[in-house]
Design a protein around this nucleic acid. Structure first.
Length: 377
RNA sequence: GGGUAGGUGGUCGAGUGGUUAAUGGCACCAGACUGUAAAUCUGGCCGCGAGAGCGUACGAUGGUUCGAAUCCAUCCCUGCCCA
């Protein structure tokens, strides 16, 4: 094997749950896993500075997005700026998503063929074409430590036939991505397992991609609106199909319960926009469940968002004050809530890592669910 | 004192004889949000009722009319202009 940009080191397997405790080595430092990765689509985790992400959230790696940075400001510009790390002043690892999710969610603006995807810019209506080769060119310019191969994220529900066709095409695109990817010593290309909610397709997708011997693998196309039991079924089916000696990434997962389940299934990395999005919409994640702090019940609540949280927001501000900021449409409200929600999830994963080391993750899950207010599955 | 423009639901503001419990914005109340076209979107927002519906409402009072927030009279109040 050539000198790989990214490698995985397994430290411990939880005897109770089978969850993995590990380290991912990258050109911009190590990542302790399992981990939650904040999303910074447009080269910024909305409203957060890199210092806040490092010192307060304690984020080890963040995501950014091929589709959005290609359209604006343009990947060549980012390259000129010295790459994404330099451009946004983030010196820890970055992962860029390939735009496959945008291909899926902006579906009325695109046409998919074997060659690639023609789409219309949501910014100015201009026509563009993404092929696997083009996506690699962009991701190479951006320079993230981990880059995702170009895939199609199929919606839920979708027919067996279409899902099969799409999954096979995604596998063919992965081959082309691997061939087109230039900076293998600096950037690790991860493959994305698709196959919708059909076990045989998931299995086939995993097999096809594993043959490519990529440095890491992701599960895509779940957590797209399906019931939780469907999600869990696919998660627990697919994760064990993935190589044990490489990072396993579950894309787009986000809620505390899903993150814990992902760890138990043997997943190392998750990302989600949820904490920052619901922050902007006036909601906090807490150890006692979701708190819609914008609601009137908190108008005179002079306690922190979460009494167990160690974040800057919780150490300094009350629910009443944050509610006031949110109601008054003050930027600080968005920032304080974003910071808290992100810290809540990174802290949750810190705890998950400890519980794995202590072979106690299942007990922790039950405790967490009880306190959070989830009904145990 | 004279002239003039006005007084509409929490607020701003449409409506100028019937399809008006009354457009819209804001405020307010709640819900949603999972590889970010999201500081967004959806619903509610006079009272009672599960509902059909009933009751009350467009400054006040009195009228015209089958029917008035809309027309008439008087009164009250507000802005501006002139003395």
């Amino acid at each position: 094997m050539r000198n790989q940009a990214v490698t995985y080191e397994l430290l411990h397997v939880c005897k109770q749950s089978g969850a993995r405790r590990g380290v991912i080595h990258t050109p911009h430092g190590d990542i302790q896993t399992p981990i939650f990765m904040p999303v910074g689509t447009q080269a910024t985790v909305k409203s957060m500075t890199p210092e806040e992400l490092k010192n307060d959230v304690k984020a080890q790696i963040i995501l950014s997005n091929t589709y959005h940075l290609y359209l604006r400001p343009g990947h060549k510009l980012v390259e000129e700026a010295g790459g994404l790390h330099n451009f946004m002043r983030w010196d820890r690892p970055i992962l860029t998503d390939c735009g496959g999710f945008q291909v899926f969610s902006l579906s009325d603006l695109r046409t998919i063929t074997e060659e690639g995807v023609e789409f219309t810019s949501h910014l100015d209506g201009s026509k563009h074409f993404f092929s696997p080769e083009k996506v690699m060119e962009i991701e190479n310019s951006l320079g993230a430590d981990i880059i995702m191969s170009f895939d199609e994220c199929v919606k839920y529900p979708e027919t067996y036939e279409y899902t099969k066709q799409s999954m096979e095409r995604t596998a063919r695109w992965a081959i082309r991505c691997k061939e087109a990817h230039k900076n293998t010593d600096k950037q690790a290309l991860f493959g994305i397992i698709q196959g919708g909610f059909y076990e045989d397709l998931r299995k086939k997708s995993a097999e096809d991609l594993i043959k490519l011997d990529l440095p890491g693998y992701a599960i895509g196309g779940i957590s797209v609106g399906e019931p939780k039991e469907e999600f869990l079924k696919m998660l627990y089916y697919t994760a064990p199909l993935m190589p044990e000696n490489k990072p396993r990434y579950l894309m787009g997962v986000g809620t505390p319960d899903y993150l814990i389940e992902a760890a138990i299934a043997g997943i190392d990395m998750c990302d989600c926009v949820l904490p920052t999005r619901i922050a902007r919409n006036g909601t906090a994640l807490t150890s006692h469940g979701k708190v819609v702090v914008r609601n009137q019940t908190y108008a005179r609540d002079f306690t922190p968002l979460d009494d167990e949280c160690d974040c800057y927001t919780c150490k300094n501000y009350t629910r009443a004050y944050i509610r006031h900021l949110v109601k008054a449409n003050e930027i600080l409200g968005v920032r304080l809530l974003s910071l808290h929600n992100l810290r809540f999830l990174t802290k949750l994963m810190e705890r998950v890592r400890i519980e794995i080391e202590n072979d106690n993750l299942l007990n922790f899950r039950d405790e967490f669910y009880k306190k959070y207010g989830y009904i145990k599955e």
